[in-house]
């Protein structure tokens, strides 16, 4: 990308995100209800873990503290996925349905950049995620978490692989809107995918491990990344399979995007 183009694109990104931030604060009551909902969720999850571990002691060598660390990774995953992957795809689906996609195609900015920038709600994401994640961060006894700089880096790498796979999954769930006219329920299933990811990754059955590389990548992003970061076992198979799945998913993403544009019927044509 040329510097001039980059400057122009970044201006568009800044302007669209500023517009989003303004629209988010229009109804402050709603905004604070949403924020409080995530705090309530955090408190409930902490209570859940407390009750569970009072009963079970530990699960496959994972203590309550290890699980709290896994939740920190999980919550970070949830908010990242919701804000950066799900919202843009919902925006894309709505745009195709209401004809706004036509206008987006005409804009002199990179289409995908515009979609992602336009749909992200920066203020909402930060305000909803921060108190929630901080509550879990303060609950973890960090001195007892066995991590090294290298294991953290490798864990982040696995997490990014999962993020790329999730992006492909979201596009796959959005694709029917280009051919069939709707994909609302398809997209809604993302919430099921992230519903439960706190599991000892190494103890997962092979089939579930395969699913974590395809249909439930948030398991890879949460349990897989936490497993690698906390050095709970041999990380090499996780890293190799994550890289392989990421390459395949990137190829699928390109093919699907091309297929989507080829199948798009303009509302104004």
């Amino acid at each position: 990308m040329k510097i001039k183009n980059f400057k122009k694109t970044s201006q568009v990104v800044r302007a669209t995100m500023k517009e989003q931030a303004q629209s988010e604060t229009t109804y402050l009551g709603n905004f604070w209800f949403d924020v409080s909902s995530t705090v309530v969720f955090a408190i409930i999850m902490l209570s859940f873990l407390s009750l569970l571990f009072r009963r079970v002691g530990s699960i496959a060598g994972y203590t309550k503290n290890d699980y709290l660390f896994m939740i920190v990774v999980g919550e970070f995953t949830f908010f990242t996925v919701a804000a950066f992957l799900v919202e843009p795809m919902i925006f894309l689906k709505d745009s195709v349905r209401n004809g706004y996609f036509d206008l987006m195609l005409l804009r002199p900015v990179p289409l995908k950049t515009y979609i992602y920038a336009r749909a992200i709600r920066p203020l909402h994401t930060i305000m909803a995620a921060l108190p929630n994640i901080l509550l879990f961060v303060f609950a973890v006894n960090w001195a007892k978490i066995d991590v090294t700089p290298l294991s953290v880096l490798l864990g982040i790498f696995v997490w990014i692989c999962g993020l790329i796979i999730f992006n492909t999954l979201m596009l796959a769930l959005t694709m029917p809107v280009f051919t069939l006219g709707d994909s609302s329920d398809m997209q809604g299933s993302w919430y099921s995918v992230v519903s439960m990811n706190m599991m000892p990754y190494e103890k997962l059955p092979s089939f579930m491990k395969f699913l974590s590389l395809t249909f439930t990548p948030s398991v890879l992003m949460t349990a897989g990344a936490a497993f690698v970061m906390m050095q709970k076992g041999n990380s090499v198979p996780v890293l190799v399979s994550a890289v392989f799945a990421t390459i395949v998913s990137l190829l699928i993403y390109r093919l699907m995007w091309r297929h989507a544009l080829n199948n798009y019927t303009s509302a104004s044509s």
């Binding site: 569970l52 002691g57 029917p176 994909s183 599991m199 699913l211």
Partner: peptide
């Protein structure tokens, strides 16, 4: 396709929670 989506969504949730509780049951100390 929305029928398939609803089924997919429900199956995924059930599969994840059952796996979680199976692991809890099998590996809890």
């Amino acid at each position: 396709l929305e029928i398939a989506a609803s089924i997919f969504s429900n199956v995924v949730t059930v599969a994840l929670f059952i796996t979680f509780w199976l692991l809890v049951g099998k590996y809890s100390s």
